[in-house]
Amino acid sequence: MSKEIKFNEETIALVNKIIKRYPEGKQKSALLPVLHIAQAEFDGWLSPETMEYVASLLRIKPVEVFEVASFYSMYNLKPVGKCILEVCRTSSCWSRGSEDIIKHLEKKLGIKVGETSKDGMFTIKSVECLGSCGGAPMLQCGASFHENLTLDKLDNIVENYRVEGKRKSYTDQDFKNTL
């Protein structure tokens, strides 16, 4: 049984703070930030129920949320692993060996790009340029950028995440205090 789709009071206060940035009646502007919060809060993905909940919070039609959530690549519309290893594969990362990084990860975790490991810990994703070409090859996990990857470094990163065992979100690092 999944937990109830509802923000706690603290998060509601945060959502209201975000809405206040925009002029009266323009609360839809808060959609992207609120979807990030919702995704972080509800198991790393946006279920139809979560999206309907966000729609009700912002007083917009559910389809407006579906339209937006399905447009942006950072929102997951299906369940994902706790750590999504997003490996950049565009030009500079490719020319500095991102294909080897992906192959190594696939072998190490026994899954293909787009799949989630059986223990639900890792999902491998290949992504387009993350603006870290100077640190190529690189991967992102949650809010963290891991740059200048080597296969050894990669092994360490994966092991550290495994030991930590926590879900990683883009919104990590004292999200609530700084927004």
Partner: peptide, 17 residues
């Protein structure tokens, strides 16, 4: 700011504060 730069958004928010 692009979503992937989430950690940079925090730096900016701290600076704004």
């Amino acid at each position: 700011i692009r979503g992937e730069y989430f950690y940079v958004s925090r730096i900016l928010e701290a600076a704004i504060e």
